[in-house]
Design a binder for these strands. Sequence first.
DNA 1: ATGTGGGCGCATCGCCGACAA
DNA 2: TTGTCGGCGATGCGCCCACAT
Lengths: 736, 736
Amino acid sequence: MASVEEKLKPRGLFSGANNLLEGMKLLKEMQDQNGVKKLINSELWHACAGPLVTLPLVGSLVYYFPQGHSEQVAVSTNRTATTQIPNYPNLPSQLLCQVHNVTLHADKETDEIYAQMSLQPVNSEKDVFPIPDFGLKPSKHPTEFFCKTLTASDTSTHGGFSVPRRAAEKLFPQLDYAMQPPTQELVVRDLHDNTWTFRHIYRGQPKRHLLTTGWSMFVGAKRLRAGDSVLFIRDEKSQLLLGVRRVKSQQTTMPSSVLSADSMHIGILAAAAHAAANRTQFSIFYNPRACPSEFVIPLAKFRKSVYGSQLSTGMRFGMMFETEESTKRRYMGTITGTSDLDPLKWPNSKWRSLQIEWDEPECRDKQNRVSPWEIETPESPFIFPSLTANLKRPFHSTLIRSSHVDLQCPSVSSLWSEQLLKMLIKPPPPNISPSIQEVKDNAPQKPQGENGQPDFTNSSISQVLHTQQIDPLQVEPASSNALLHQYPGQVDFNSFPGVRKTVDQEFWDLHFNNAAKCDLSSLQYNSSQNPSDIYSCLNLDGSSNSGSAIIDPSVSSMILDDFSADFQNPSDYHLVGNFCSNQDVQSQITSASLTDSQTFSLQEYADNSGGASSSNVDFDDNNLLQQSSWQQIQKAGSVGRSIDVSSFKYYDELRSEIESMFGLEGLLNDSSSGWKLVYVDFENDVLLVGDDPWEEFVGCVKCIRILSPLEVKQMSEEGMQLLNSAGLQGVVTQDS
Amino acid sequence: MASVEEKLKPRGLFSGANNLLEGMKLLKEMQDQNGVKKLINSELWHACAGPLVTLPLVGSLVYYFPQGHSEQVAVSTNRTATTQIPNYPNLPSQLLCQVHNVTLHADKETDEIYAQMSLQPVNSEKDVFPIPDFGLKPSKHPTEFFCKTLTASDTSTHGGFSVPRRAAEKLFPQLDYAMQPPTQELVVRDLHDNTWTFRHIYRGQPKRHLLTTGWSMFVGAKRLRAGDSVLFIRDEKSQLLLGVRRVKSQQTTMPSSVLSADSMHIGILAAAAHAAANRTQFSIFYNPRACPSEFVIPLAKFRKSVYGSQLSTGMRFGMMFETEESTKRRYMGTITGTSDLDPLKWPNSKWRSLQIEWDEPECRDKQNRVSPWEIETPESPFIFPSLTANLKRPFHSTLIRSSHVDLQCPSVSSLWSEQLLKMLIKPPPPNISPSIQEVKDNAPQKPQGENGQPDFTNSSISQVLHTQQIDPLQVEPASSNALLHQYPGQVDFNSFPGVRKTVDQEFWDLHFNNAAKCDLSSLQYNSSQNPSDIYSCLNLDGSSNSGSAIIDPSVSSMILDDFSADFQNPSDYHLVGNFCSNQDVQSQITSASLTDSQTFSLQEYADNSGGASSSNVDFDDNNLLQQSSWQQIQKAGSVGRSIDVSSFKYYDELRSEIESMFGLEGLLNDSSSGWKLVYVDFENDVLLVGDDPWEEFVGCVKCIRILSPLEVKQMSEEGMQLLNSAGLQGVVTQDS
DNA sequence: ATGTGGGCGCATCGCCGACAA
DNA sequence: TTGTCGGCGATGCGCCCACAT
């Protein structure tokens, strides 16, 4: 794992410097600002930024939202944009850009973290410019850290700092408890690479960890008040680092005495408009903790949310927020409408296009409008990146993923969305579609309302399809059932406690308990064929979570989220539910031992998977969301893999690599073998690999799927033509 | 004296707020920012800003210079604008604006002062919009203040603050010296209206004034370091106030984490361009102590410098700078060229159009380009505003001002500028123009080179006109000589030491001593009729200053500059010189007692003037330069007065007021009396008061002059027609 | 497990005149 | 006239524990 920090490169801002003098000025400024190559520690920066913040990768494609940028300025200046702001008709509400530079910063006065990004508008994805220096690392959130909100005692001059026990034991070097009292000196560095030394002592009755000498000086220098937070992390080199977060009320940034708020709002729009017109870079600051919402959105994340699912009024959703303890928590709500936030200046903008209502009354302080990519819906859950970039993810493909012929890329909503359904105009051939009923029949019916609550374990998918006016009996792909039974032994939940927890119980519970809140009259699809249909939209993923467990709150949610990011295919969940629905799943899982989950090596299970062995290609779930040039490769019953298609010269080279990845040597480059490669492009069309000019293929491939001769044979019954036009097999619309 | 501070009005920024919610937000913000109507004390603000800073008045006309604004941003961000900045071809380099709002601010963290101005672009001077709320006061610099740079002892934790003796005696309440030791408690307020209490004690051996208890807390709270300055003032209500100035090196403002420097530069340009295109207000911040040069220039000041004098290569000039003790000092230099600072983006801009060279090598840190209005030249000296707004100025009109029929407003350069001369196309009637030679003949010739220096006392005006290729014999107005002798007794310099000092000796000395530096070959006008002409441009005001005195450096320059601001009419200087040229003026004046000059009440002399008595209308020499809606009224031989024309309903009301002002009851409203009122509009046309619609008159009147029947008779000989077309009487061009 | 407060030693703040400069 | 220093008191920082939650 290449541990390369964000590099400080000559800024795009100054690439146009027209003389040597300016260049030298720049050099001096950089030294002034950063000292001699004083780079900000990326892990520490991300620790300060919080678990929800992920920066785009250099070279990747993003959408830049001027409205969002303007919001950040509004928050920083306490001034919203006025009507004095001119229109920039040539500036779209979302500007496709390539990220040219990302630098991390921290305010020298307040330690407030922020990032500078250089963005270059591009015409299309094919317009991307290869960024030469690519050894950059994606956002890495620290594994070992703690964050404490300072008490009055912590900040008073009367004493030191009371260290939470777990934090001291997890982060600080082991104390020599033989000493009386046990004492050591801690040397800690802050964002500016200043070193602070604290006396760490374990004393008192009862015994406790304290920071004494040195602490008050730190509090004074950073001007900390009760309510501010201090966070410690241990980086890869086991060095202790610390950061500061101010209490929100103290973040009331004074109005800048440099520029009026209006001029600032105009400035960001004019700068973006000018850059868009000239295809030149422009530079922005992103202030994660001040900014209401991210306004630089990775292309894939945007696409997934906007094209990958159909958001409609009445739909339930979840959204992640940071807790006071710097962990994530999901809040639930209902979409109450879709409309332009600013119909005059930004018509048809996706920015905060969703009007929502939160379930909990204490959410009043939260925005009542969100953007599609901010939320999780039944159709595109778990879009948030994981805290744990370390964990490999291949294995659960083996366990759960897609055992039917799923031609969709996992990064796109894997529930068949209305959009895709509309594409299916042909009736299905009668000889395929072994129905979902088969699966149902294999699972013993769980009586409804064992604890007074209805059970949707088995009926959910069919109900979804009912809701969308589709015959559920026509839905389930042909091969799913067969493949399901192909690896039955691996779907043993008791042996995978970590996996079991990945299905988010909280999501499920909230979802369920708030079902009554759904405004039925606003449902877009209203084809109630039976009374239970009222839940079909509410608990769309109820079945998905039927294998979920109650989570031990003391267990870090990091790992859980890492897993959940891959639970994207509801049919997977269905299978899980299928296996477990005859038991009290929750109690069963809750009782499983979780103690070892944090050191649980997932990689070893991958080696048991159906063909592929471990490889030296690193996976990072950030790729999934942020990078358009890495493609997923799937094979039924095998570990999913990722590959950078653009690194190959031509099809044969690509095929050879895939062959070796999946142990299919000689099969893919031999057309007589019967194996086929198909791919999904950005328009969700399914195409045969090799048909298109290589460059075009590289530019539009989203994911690749390996089809065995058997799968090809099954598909051939409706022909590749249907595949091409529908993108899915065996899913049809009911004539409505 | 109406003591009304700058009022906080609903900001122009928000005048376009489109709903109630925004309005309430605004209200909250204002409270947040300013507390409950916590207005910043204007005197204190100006004390912090320094003696050179004068803010434009609400309602007045100014030129806004985007380049200058950009410079301020560059300084604040440490980033100059890059080539990425787009061009705004429709944004002129100087934008004529009306000032709609001026609010004073101070940074809550650093106490750094700044001002916000709302500017509205206007098409022409006639486009001005009467600002309703008009009880505003011009910039008032405090009379009683001192400023001390803090020493290491002052800021150490070891002791208190050593108060300079003069400061303590001048500002602080009188100590009871009977006490042992003399002690009192001082309660002082800062810019944010916080109160600080200090123990003021007079002790030690030798005795000295100290601030002890309370001081260290103040130093800590304001984070003062040695090198920073603290200033105390006593305001009108005898309350003590204090302010803070940071040492320049500490002013390195961090790069804003809100907006990139480029976006800021773009923002100011785009905001101004948009406002200019739509004639809407825009809002700017002006940071006097960070800003390299003012970029909002009163129209009159601009005109005076640009049209009122011909600046050319080789010309000597002076320019005011603030000293470390917060006083003014003039530095001398030579104009070395005229060119565009940025020929590509801002062609033909007056901003820093002058390339200059400073006399003193230690001026290297000073700009090597300046704008015309920043400098004093022989043709337009003393453009800087005074520190002493308290001093009344009427009397010197009596003493010195304009005893000929001068129809020019004093706010315009009173030396007949080339521009105006060009307007005079008709040859003069032979029966007027009693020549300047008459004046000369009345003055005994002073032999040249008494101390090795040439004497220009008498020849200066004629030489000026020679230089401009005009026959000096045709220049002097008819009535000047007669009026000169009307009040001979008042022109007694020995009885007016304060007056004598107003002509700046330093300027004169430096000017003279550096004459050899002048590049004669670059002189624009080269009509040398005799060898002494080489000095005619260099020492143009040599004669003007022939009545000048060597200034006691210990005397504050405030008063001097107040006076000097009115020495605008070279014929005045000429008269002065005329009276004194038969003596060694310098030695004579130097020997005059200056000790009482600071408490010298000028008002009492005004009561002796030839007709008008004192009035309750306040004069402020700032009006002279900055105000377009206050108008000067002049009458030959009387004290000049100011009046707000817009406060009257119609001509008769205005005439009545002027009558009572000048003791002319019944004469002006009676057309048969023979008295006339004429006025000069913003285009320097001279018109009869009453001809125009009242509103139009109010919108364009610049100054008013009362003509006696005698003067009217004299004028009638060439007719009002000539007056209208020329704007000056009896001044003609030689056919060139 | 950890926030707060009393006790108390001692470091530093802060008031004083004595010197210069 | 006023900046700095040695002197010395008294304030309050900061380390310790006992509680309480």
